[in-house]
Amino acid sequence: MPARTITVASLFTSCLLTAAMGTGCSEGSPSSAEAERRAAAPALDKAQAQRILDSYADGANRVRRKLNRGALAGIEADPQLSMDDASLKLRRVIKRPPPEVKFSNTTFYIPRVSGYPHWFAAGAVTGQGKRSMRHALLFTQAKPGAPWLLTANPYPTSDALSTVALDPDGYATPVEPDEKNGLATAPGKLPEAHAALLTDGPGASKASLLADGAQTSETYKALKQGEQTLAGRGVTLSSRFSPTRYRVFALRTKDRGALVWYVLKQNEAYSSSKRGQLAVGGDLLGLAPVKAARTRMDTTVLVQYLAAVPPKGRATVTGMYRKAVIAHGT
């Protein structure tokens, strides 16, 4: 590859963050809607949730051994499915299978929900020592009799799920996306606010709902610096984030706040007037031929987030999982 070729690997990078999570209890009575949810029957118990997690691990390891993308649909749903499918495409190209899936230190957070989708979360760890990784897995069941599928799995940098409040029977309380009772902001407002911040900066409308941090203000700064660096090499990059159609899930926390799962879409466009200046690389491998980008490369990226919404103050992003899922070169 010529020395001046710019490898397009998607500028947005994962960064670790340190987030302090409140775990104390505050005074306050639940809303009537929340009281109704607390009275609902849970969709399953912890023993059943453990079997679902074990079955997922078995299925993931079968996929791993053969890099069988087709089998993913039997154990995952979007957005996780699209993201892991793209990851397998990359691993086929680099000929490196994903690591074995073996969960430890597992804790389940099963909400009392009426209607579908049924869902639950699980905190778990894979790997050991310096290679260990935390998971905030979220499984859903779309309708009666449907399989339980892994729908989201952002990687928290702390034991964020330990802040989820449990009732005397050990079950969690769901928070609806539009519910603001006792919260600094409704969970469903986070995608729009986060997308605005990453696209237009901390001064954007509603961006103040989110605290400064590695996945918010620092990411925006890094993107702007990256754009300037590429411009100096003759490459123009534009990047825009937007909310997605994927459902927002949330659980009540011990401090009467909420722990929230949500997803953003990032569209990147790289261009250069000089042919051959761009090349496909990084997490775009497998999505387009290496030489597909002659003068332009357009990518679509999905980013899962885990965030803590307090009763008062700004929401803190505590985890993420990012993967490019589409790339087109011209």
Rank of each mutant, 00 (worst) to 15 (best):
E27A: 14
G276Y: 03
D78K: 07
V263D: 14
D212Q: 03
T126R: 11
F103S: 07
L90K: 12
N61E: 00
F120I: 02
Y220V: 04
R240I: 09
R134V: 09
L44V: 08
P156T: 10
Y116G: 05
A204F: 00
A231F: 07
Y262M: 01
G28Q: 06
V164C: 05
E100F: 10
W119S: 11
S104D: 12
L150Y: 01
T253H: 03
Y246L: 05
Q80D: 14
V290I: 14
A288S: 11
M133F: 00
A33K: 10
R38W: 11
D54M: 10
R37D: 14
K95S: 14
L209A: 11
E76Y: 06
W261K: 01
L150G: 06
K46R: 13
K189H: 12
L285W: 05
S217P: 03
A43S: 15
G257V: 10
A193C: 08
A160K: 03
G170P: 07
I6M: 04
M320C: 07
P174C: 04
G22R: 13
G201E: 01
G74S: 13
Q141G: 05
D54C: 04
Q141E: 13
G232Y: 04
P191E: 09
L161K: 01
G182T: 01
G129E: 05
F241Y: 15
Q50V: 08
D54T: 14
A142F: 01
G74W: 05
K265N: 13
L251M: 04
G319Y: 07
T5N: 08
A3W: 10
Q266T: 10
Q228S: 14
K221N: 09
A186M: 06
V63P: 03
V8Y: 00
H328V: 13
L306Q: 10
L72H: 06
G59E: 08
A146M: 00
R322D: 14
A186K: 05
V263L: 08
K102S: 14
A214L: 03
P174A: 01
G22F: 08
A152E: 12
A43L: 09
S272F: 02
R134Q: 12
Y171V: 03
V290W: 11
A196M: 02
G129V: 02
P147K: 05
Y270P: 05
A77D: 13
Y155D: 11
A41R: 12
V63S: 05
S208F: 11
G281V: 04
F108H: 02
L251D: 07
A71V: 10
K95P: 08
D212Y: 01
G329F: 04
W261F: 06
A195V: 00
L138R: 08
A327E: 10
F108P: 04
L259G: 02
T236I: 09
N153R: 06
S14Q: 14
R38V: 00
P311F: 02
G188M: 02
S31F: 02
V125M: 11
R51N: 13
G276R: 03
W119M: 09
A196T: 01
Q50I: 08
T7E: 15
Q50K: 15
G282P: 02
A196H: 04
L149D: 04
T236R: 14
V235A: 01
L90F: 10
K66S: 14
T299C: 07
V303M: 11
N68M: 09
G59Q: 12
D45P: 07
A142E: 12
S271Y: 07
L166P: 03
A184T: 04
R65L: 12
A33P: 00
P154N: 07
C15M: 12
P79D: 01
L53G: 06
M297R: 02
